[in-house]
C-alpha cells in the first residue's frame, strides 16, 4: 500500500501480510481521512493506494471483498437483531467458515442473538460491529478507534483476535488512543503531527 496526500504529504507506507500498522497522532491530524482513503471511501487529492501492486480504484469489488472496515459509526442497524445484523454483513462480503452463533460467542454476545441491536449498550454495539470482522473473510482490516467504549476485558479479547488475524497472514491498519499490548515484531507505528 502506498499513499501520498496534501494534508499529509509524502507518505509512503508498505505493509506485508501478517503486519499491523497503528496510526497515531492528535485529534484532527487526518487519521480518519487516511483510513478512509485506504478503504477507497474517500478519494485522495493525489497519489494512490495499491493493493497487491494494483490501484484499488481499478480493483473495486475485488478489493472491497478483501477489506473489512469498522469506522466511527458502528454500521449496526438498531431495528435488527444481532444475528440479522451479522447475516446482512455476511451477505455483503465473503462469509467466513465460522458459525454465526460461534461468532457471537467469541465477542461475548451469545445471549443477545435475538435481541434488537438498538437495546444494546454502546460497548455491546461496538462488539457487534467488530464481530463483523470474523463473520466475514477479509484479509485487510481497517479499524478506526476500534476500542471506543469497550471495557478492559473486551479490549484484551479483541487484541487477542487481532493477534490471531495477523498469525493467519492478515493485515490490520488501525488508529487508537489506547495503549494495547500487541506483538511488537509485526507492528509498525505511524506518528502523524498536526499540519502547520
Amino acid at each position: 500500500m502506498r499513499n501520498d496526500r496534501l494534508l499529509f504529504e509524502h507518505l509512503d507506507i508498505g505493509l506485508e501480510a501478517g503486519q499491523m500498522l497503528v496510526v497515531e497522532g492528535p485529534n484532527g491530524c487526518g487519521k480518519t481521512s487516511l483510513l478512509r482513503i485506504l478503504t477507497g471511501l474517500r478519494l485522495a487529492d493525489g497519489g494512490e493506494v495499491l493493493w497487491r501492486g494494483e490501484p484499488i480504484d481499478r480493483l473495486a469489488g475485488d478489493y472491497f471483498e478483501q477489506v473489512n472496515y469498522v469506522g466511527h459509526h458502528d454500521g449496526v442497524k438498531h431495528e435488527l437483531s444481532c444475528l440479522e445484523n451479522l447475516r446482512l454483513a455476511r451477505a455483503m462480503g465473503v462469509p467466513s467458515q465460522l458459525d454465526l452463533d460461534d461468532v457471537l460467542e467469541r465477542v461475548n454476545l451469545y445471549a443477545y442473538g435475538e435481541t434488537e441491536a438498538g437495546s444494546l449498550s454502546a460497548g455491546q454495539k461496538r462488539r457487534l460491529a467488530l464481530a463483523r470482522l470474523i463473520a466475514t473473510d477479509a484479509m485487510l482490516w481497517i479499524l478506526d478507534e476500534p476500542f471506543t467504549s469497550l471495557d478492559k476485558a473486551s479490549m484484551a479479547l479483541f487484541s487477542g483476535m487481532f493477534e490471531q488475524h495477523l498469525q493467519q497472514h492478515g493485515v490490520i491498519v488501525m488508529t487508537s488512543h489506547h495503549d494495547i499490548s500487541l506483538p511488537t515484531q509485526a507492528l509498525q507505528r505511524l506518528q502523524m503531527g498536526m499540519a502547520s
Binding site: T39, G71, H72, H73, D74, G75, K77, A89, M92, G93
Partner: peptide, 11 residues
C-alpha cells in the same frame, strides 16, 4: 448509522 459505508464497501 454508518451502514451506508458498509454498503459502499460491499463486494
Amino acid at each position: 448509522d454508518g451502514s451506508l459505508e458498509q454498503i459502499l464497501l460491499s463486494a
